[in-house]
Amino acid sequence: MRKYVPKDNVQAKAYYTDRFHVVPRVPREKVEEGSHFAEVVKAIGTDLKESYIEISTLVLHINPEDNFKVIKTLKERCGYTQCSEQSAVDYLAKENEFELFWQLLNVKEAKRVRVVCRLEKGLAIESIEPLFKSANFAEREMFDMFGIKVNNHPFLKRILMPDDWEGHPLLKTYPLFGDEFASWYEVDKIFGKEYRDIIGPENRDPAKIDIEDTKRFSRVGYEVPFGAEYNGEEEQGIEYSETALVNYNKKASKTLDERR
């Protein structure tokens, strides 16, 4: 039976995890009374689902429909005048939703706030571009990488990938090496589909050595003159030294059917 490979998350995974391994959590602190962050929490009021301080950043969990309102409050009443970063995290495999975050900066107080919300798959988020112009590019990047639609964005279009690209690369379902479309993209675009056979598939294996290629790599034990034609003969290992080189002659070794 073929080994089952999950399709919803094709990223690299740890091949071994100790049975008794308990993952600790980064300590979360409560918001102290009277601090700057306490005022922020107070200003947002009932829209807040959860708030805590994680590594000197105040994290505010909100509902996705309140994002514009909350960030407007943060900007106008709490002095968070810069949106440093905005993006998403893919949790589609586990919870069928994205986690969106906005990283805001208060220049006067030198404090940072992260607004976090969970957005279900297929839903759109309200653009904060009217508040922060920096969200213009950031939201386009989020759309490009995750396919999350943004309402009322002035120019929602792919930004990093080409306009005719298929798929959203940062989704967990998208493999690192790209899909079929990605692997032939430049050939299809420049030469046309009919040239796929001539150019050949991409080599994704960095350790691959081509036995017919006598120009670029030499194979230890099977050296031939530079540029010699490959005649399809079976490989004959040349024994240079019995001690220094491994004997590549397959006849001399025995392959076991089963592991002992």
């Binding site: 600790p24 959590r25 994680e54 590594i55 990283q103």
Partner: peptide, 19 residues
């Protein structure tokens, strides 16, 4: 450990942060 972090640093070009 499980958690999230955003750390800003002042690179020659400006605020370089890793989330």
């Amino acid at each position: 450990p499980r958690g999230e972090v955003y750390v800003p640093t002042e690179s020659p070009k400006g605020e370089l942060g890793f989330y």
